[in-house]
C-alpha cells in the first residue's frame, strides 16, 4: 500500500481516535494536577488531588467493591456464557430466534434494564423475586439496603445485561472448532466434560480471552446500573469507582473536576493492571499467528 493510500484510508480513523481518545486523555491527566471549575482555566495544585483521593476511605472501598465485582462477574460470564453458547450452538432451526431473544438484555439501555431489575427485588414495586425468595426461605432480605444482598442484586443485573454479549462471541468461536477434532476426541473415548475441557476450550482460548478482556473493561466501568439498584451505595460500601468519580466530581452541581480527573487516571491504571495478563496473551498469540 502506498503512503498516500495509507494516509487516506487510515487518516479519518486516526483523527477520530486523536479527537475522542487521545485529547480527552491528555486533558484528564492535565486536570488531575489542577483545581478546575467549569468555564475557567485550572490552577496547578501538584499532587493534591491524588493525595485527597488516597486519603478518602470511600476511594479504597470503591476500588475493593469494583475489583471484587469485576472478578466475580467476569468469571460467571465466562462459565455461563460458554454453557449458554454450547446449548445455543446445538440448536438448528430455532437458533436465530433463541439468539435474538437472548440478546434482548444487551440492547436494553443499562439504566432501564437496571430499573426493571430493581423492581424484581423491591416489594414497593411488586418485588416478585424477593417475594418468592421470602416464601421459599422464610428470610426477609433487605435487597436494597444491606451490603451483601445488594451486591448479589448488582452482580446478577450486570451478569444479566452482559451475558448475551459473552454468549454471542463464544458462539462465534465455537463455529470455528473443527468437527473432525471433536469426532476424533469422541472416538478416543473422551467424556463430554473432557471433550469440552481438553479440546473445545483450548481451541477457543483466544475468544475466551477476548470475552474476559471486554468484560473486565465493561464491569470496571459499572455506573448507571447502580443508580436504581443501590440507592444508598455510599453508605453500604457498594459504590463503584465510576459512581465515586461522579459523586465527588458532579453530584449536586459539584465541580470537583480536578479530583474527578485524578481518580479517573487511577482507574485507567487499575484497568491496565487488570487487563495486563490478557493483553500479554493476545500479543503472544498475535506474534505466534
Amino acid at each position: 500500500m502506498r503512503r498516500r493510500e495509507f494516509a487516506v484510508l487510515a487518516g479519518p480513523s486516526i483523527l477520530v481516535m486523536v479527537g475522542l481518545l487521545v485529547l480527552p486523555l491528555v486533558r484528564t491527566i492535565e486536570w488531575s494536577f489542577q483545581k478546575v471549575d467549569y468555564g475557567s482555566p485550572g490552577s496547578f495544585v501538584g499532587l493534591d488531588n491524588y493525595q485527597e483521593a488516597f486519603s478518602d476511605p470511600r476511594f479504597g472501598k470503591a476500588v475493593i467493591f469494583t475489583v471484587i465485582l469485576t472478578l466475580i462477574v467476569t468469571a460467571v460470564l465466562l462459565v455461563a456464557g460458554y454453557v449458554l453458547a454450547v446449548l445455543v450452538n446445538g440448536l438448528h432451526r430455532a437458533k436465530p430466534y433463541v439468539l435474538g431473544l437472548l440478546l434482548v438484555p444487551y440492547v436494553i439501555p443499562q439504566i432501564v434494564g437496571a430499573t426493571m431489575f430493581s423492581w424484581l427485588f423491591n416489594p414497593n414495586y411488586g418485588g416478585v423475586l424477593s417475594y418468592l425468595i421470602e416464601k421459599l426461605t422464610g428470610a426477609h432480605i433487605l435487597w436494597m439496603s444491606e451490603t451483601w444482598p445488594n451486591r448479589v442484586v448488582v452482580s446478577l443485573d450486570v451478569i444479566w445485561a452482559m451475558l448475551p454479549f459473552a454468549m454471542l462471541i463464544i458462539v462465534a468461536g465455537l463455529q470455528g472448532v473443527s468437527d473432525e477434532m471433536i469426532e476424533a476426541a469422541r472416538i478416543d473415548g473422551a467424556s463430554t466434560l473432557r471433550l469440552h475441557l481438553s479440546v473445545i476450550v483450548p481451541s477457543i482460548r483466544g475468544v475466551l480471552g477476548f470475552v474476559a478482556l471486554i468484560s473486565i473493561m465493561d464491569v470496571v466501568r459499572t455506573f448507571d446500573a447502580l443508580v436504581p439498584l443501590s440507592p444508598q451505595a455510599v453508605q453500604i460500601g457498594n459504590e463503584s469507582i465510576m459512581l465515586y468519580i461522579y459523586n465527588v466530581a458532579f453530584q449536586n452541581g459539584g465541580q470537583n473536576l480536578g479530583l474527578g480527573s485524578a481518580i479517573d487516571v487511577l482507574l485507567i491504571l487499575l484497568i491496565v493492571v487488570l487487563l495486563l495478563p490478557f493483553i500479554r496473551g493476545v500479543a503472544k498469540e498475535t506474534r505466534a499467528g
Binding site: 423491591n122 414495586y125 439496603s145 440507592p231 444508598q232
Partner: peptide
C-alpha cells in the same frame, strides 16, 4: 417506617401510598 426507607425518594413514597403499604 419501611426498613429500606433510606433508599426511598419521593416517587417511592408515592408508590407506598399508591399500593397501600
Amino acid at each position: 417506617m419501611d426498613p429500606q426507607v433510606t433508599t426511598f425518594d419521593q416517587p417511592a413514597v408515592q408508590q407506598q401510598m399508591y399500593n397501600g403499604s
